[in-house]
Design a protein around this nucleic acid. Structure first.
Length: 456
RNA sequence: GUGAUUGUAGCUCAGUUGGUUAGAGCGCCAGAUUGUGGCUCUGGAGGUCGCGGGUUCGAGUCCCGUCUCUCACCCCA
């Protein structure tokens, strides 16, 4: 017999893990709802035509594909089969794939249901996504994303709201030391213009995105290998090295990017977002304009965000941005702009675990265990159990006749707070022994009093 | 996709230059205590040493292959 195992990069979540995960999920869900987002769920699988081409070539390779049902090789061109080229055969044998993120399925949903959606449409979605990546720290092949997106408005107040939501989620989770990095694709384009690197934007952005990870020298090295000349690099790092308050950075960039329409427009939008923050009464604490933030997903066109929990060696726990043309990819005639944020709760979990931020009592368990001695007291226990549950007290009865020792041990291990012991005497008198399994104290009380005390 | 790394009891790990019947701690089960868990004591169960092949009189230990874990790169939550 083969030992059972899990596929690479996937995990089981036992009860104690789930208690903590639920806490994070509930927190995020509550914040999304408080900000006026409505729930949406989409299928785990999508047509591959929906998914491919939205995440760049690299992303396409990370899609999990689902083999067609039935005798799927029958219809395939024999010459193609003979070629043994997986890439060319794939479209013939796999029409579906597992979703790679929640934004693209959302865009698909919007296009398909355009007639019954009132714009601007705000939705949130909390579901697992799958990537055929090689797992490593903070990286799984199945993980949850918690997305909130608004489509159908260009208003920059949406960007500001994203920042408010991030702040509220972090503060409710008890995360104190974190940074919301913000940048704008147009500013990045402006920088590319300023150093005359048009047409080589992607190489440029990918390299500077690594700045805080590998340092200035290594980025310079990578860029010169990619064909950037020293004077370009000088100008680039002159711009990137701007330090100080967000407002100082904006001011200084206004000068260095003054020749670029795109750059100026991006800066103006960022400025607006900061203005909205102020107007709302929120400071720009934790928010940092970071010119080195680029983000890989190719569909972003406006503001981009990333949240990093400091002092934890885990990638970003949240990311998002504005995209202009996502619905166009599905043939929508009208231009629908959208902006969204995605929280990665698996990484948030890992980070909180590392920082010891979970409160210890977060275990989901019954409050009362009913202990008994024989068939008679067991049956009486069932009545007691019913009364407890009617009063909304989470409770359970030890399901078989066993030694008291064993029953109490069970309750203690499951961290059930109280044990009610029902013997002959208790059954007759209606006064039950209730034992606190945490501190060991024990008293005798009538059922009504017990229920009253436990209901609080 | 590239590179490195790990694998011995349910868990965390020892195991010497290859040498008898592979160990410890924790956990688990039972008893001491037939109506009282956590502490203590006593006893017990549990391993094809990841899998397959090779070298050897002899392999947990050496060699090859394979799978797996973890980490880094690429990319990303």
């Amino acid at each position: 017999m083969e030992k059972p195992s899990l596929p690479k990069g996937t995990r089981d979540f036992g009860p104690s893990t789930m208690a903590k995960r639920q806490f994070i999920l509930d927190t995020i869900r509550q914040v999304f709802q408080k900000f006026g987002f409505l729930p949406l769920e989409t299928p785990a699988m999508e047509n591959l035509s929906t998914l491919t081409g939205k995440y760049g070539e690299e992303g396409d390779q990370l899609l999990f594909k689902i083999l067609n049902s039935g005798d799927f090789l029958k219809e395939v061109d024999p010459a193609k089969l003979e070629s043994r080229n997986s890439k060319s055969i794939t479209p013939d044998i796999a029409e579906k794939g597992l979703r790679y993120d929640l934004t693209v399925p959302f865009a698909r949903f919007v296009v398909m249901n355009r007639h019954e959606i009132t714009l601007p449409f705000k939705r949130f979605q909390i579901q697992p996504v799958w990537r055929a990546d090689r797992p490593q720290k903070g990286r799984y092949r199945e993980f949850f994303q918690c997305d909130a997106d608004v489509v159908g408005t260009d208003s920059l107040v949406c960007e500001a709201e994203i920042i408010f939501m991030i702040k509220e989620v972090m503060s409710r989770l008890g995360v104190i030391d974190y940074t919301i990095k913000i940048n704008h694709r147009r500013i990045l384009n402006g920088i590319a213009e300023a150093i005359q690197a048009m047409g080589k934007e992607s190489e440029l952005f990918v390299a500077i995105d690594k700045l805080d990870k590998i340092g200035v020298e290594n980025v310079k090295k990578e860029l010169s290998e990619k064909g950037f000349n020293p004077s370009q690099l000088d100008t680039l790092f002159q711009v990137l090295s701007i330090q100080g308050l967000n407002s100082d950075k904006i001011e200084s960039l206004n000068n260095s990017l003054s020749a670029s329409n795109s750059g100026i427009k991006g800066l103006r939008e960022i400025q607006h977002v900061f203005d909205f923050l102020k107007q709302y009464g929120e400071s720009d604490e934790h928010v940092e304009l970071d010119l080195a933030l680029a983000r890989g997903l190719s569909y972003y066109t406006g503001c981009i965000f990333e949240v990093k929990i400091n002092s934890v060696s885990i990638g970003s726990v949240s990311g998002g941005g504005r995209y202009d043309n996502l619905t166009q990819a599905f043939g929508a005639k009208e231009r629908l702009s959208g902006v969204g944020i995605s929280f990665g709760i698996d990484r948030i979990y890992d980070a909180m675990e590392e920082l010891n931020l979970f409160s210890p009592q977060a275990l989901l368990s019954s409050k009362v265990l009913i202990c008994h001695f024989d068939e008679g007291t067991f049956n009486h226990g069932l009545h007691v159990l019913a009364s407890l549950r009617k009063s909304g007290i989470a409770s359970e009865i030890y399901p078989e006749v066993a030694k008291l020792k064993k029953q109490l041990e069970y309750g203690s291990k499951k961290r059930i707070e109280h044990a009610i012991v029902i013997g002959e005497e208790e059954m007759k008198s209606g006064i039950f022994t209730i034992k606190n399994l945490i501190n060991g104290e024990q008293t005798r009380l009538p059922l009504e009093t017990i229920i009253q005390q436990l209901s609080n």
